Lab assay of single mutants.
Amino acid sequence: SGNANTETLPSGWEQRKDPHGRTYYVDHNTRTTTWERPQPLPPGWERR
């Protein structure tokens, strides 16, 4: 039932692989990409 990797990503993020097989992350909220895995927001924090 779903990929465990995507469940731990913050809302709006997606994990992808480039043509060389390297994993990167897409932030659909800001339309940016990063090599660093995004950290889920700490409990009690809200994204503004």
Rank of each mutant, 00 (worst) to 15 (best):
S1N: 01
S1F: 09
G2A: 13
G2H: 03
G2S: 14
G2N: 15
G2E: 15
N3Q: 07
N3K: 13
N3H: 06
N3A: 09
N3W: 01
N3F: 07
A4D: 14
A4V: 07
A4K: 15
A4F: 14
A4P: 11
N5Y: 09
N5C: 12
N5I: 04
N5A: 04
T6L: 09
T6A: 12
E7M: 07
E7C: 08
E7P: 12
E7W: 07
E7S: 06
T8S: 14
T8P: 14
L9V: 07
L9N: 03
L9P: 03
L9A: 06
L9E: 06
L9G: 05
P10V: 03
P10R: 05
S11A: 10
S11Q: 12
S11V: 14
S11W: 11
S11C: 10
S11L: 12
S11I: 11
G12C: 03
G12I: 00
G12P: 02
G12W: 01
W13M: 00
W13R: 02
W13D: 05
W13C: 02
W13Q: 01
E14N: 02
E14W: 00
E14Q: 08
E14R: 00
E14S: 06
E14G: 02
Q15S: 12
Q15K: 08
Q15F: 02
Q15G: 06
Q15I: 15
Q15D: 11
R16F: 10
R16P: 01
K17L: 09
K17P: 02
K17V: 11
D18P: 01
D18C: 04
D18I: 00
D18F: 00
D18S: 08
D18R: 00
P19I: 11
P19Q: 10
P19N: 09
P19R: 11
P19E: 11
H20D: 15
H20A: 12
H20T: 09
H20I: 04
H20S: 13
G21W: 00
G21T: 01
G21L: 02
G21I: 00
R22E: 09
R22P: 03
R22T: 15
R22G: 04
T23C: 01
T23M: 06
T23I: 04
Y24R: 01
Y24L: 03
Y24T: 04
Y24Q: 03
Y24W: 02
Y24I: 05
Y25D: 02
Y25W: 10
Y25A: 03
Y25I: 01
Y25H: 10
V26A: 01
D27P: 01
D27G: 02
D27W: 00
D27H: 11
H28C: 06
H28I: 12
H28Y: 07
H28N: 09
H28F: 03
N29W: 04
N29G: 08
N29L: 05
N29R: 09
N29M: 03
N29T: 08
T30G: 05
T30I: 02
R31H: 12
R31P: 03
R31L: 07
R31D: 07
R31K: 15
R31M: 05
T32F: 04
T32G: 03
T32A: 04
T32P: 00
T32W: 01
T32L: 11
T33S: 10
T33A: 06
T33M: 06
T33D: 01
T33Y: 04
T33W: 02
T33R: 04
T33I: 00
T34N: 03
T34F: 00
T34V: 02
T34A: 06
T34M: 03
W35K: 04
E36A: 10
E36Y: 15
E36F: 15
E36L: 15
E36Q: 15
E36H: 15
R37W: 00
R37G: 05
R37N: 06
R37E: 07
R37Q: 07
P38I: 01
P38T: 01
P38C: 01
P38R: 02
P38H: 02
P38G: 01
P38W: 00
P38F: 00
Q39N: 14
Q39Y: 04
Q39V: 11
Q39A: 14
Q39D: 13
Q39T: 14
Q39F: 12
P40Y: 05
P40S: 12
P40H: 08
P40C: 09
P40K: 14
P40A: 13
L41Q: 14
L41C: 11
L41A: 14
L41G: 12
P42R: 08
P42D: 14
P42L: 06
P42C: 08
P42H: 06
P42W: 05
P43G: 13
P43A: 12
P43Q: 13
P43S: 12
G44E: 12
G44A: 12
G44D: 13
W45S: 15
W45M: 14
W45I: 15
W45Q: 15
W45C: 15
W45L: 14
W45T: 15
W45V: 15
E46K: 07
E46C: 10
E46W: 01
R47S: 15
R47G: 15
R47V: 13
R47T: 15
R47C: 14
R47N: 15
R48Q: 15
R48T: 12
R48H: 15
R48K: 13
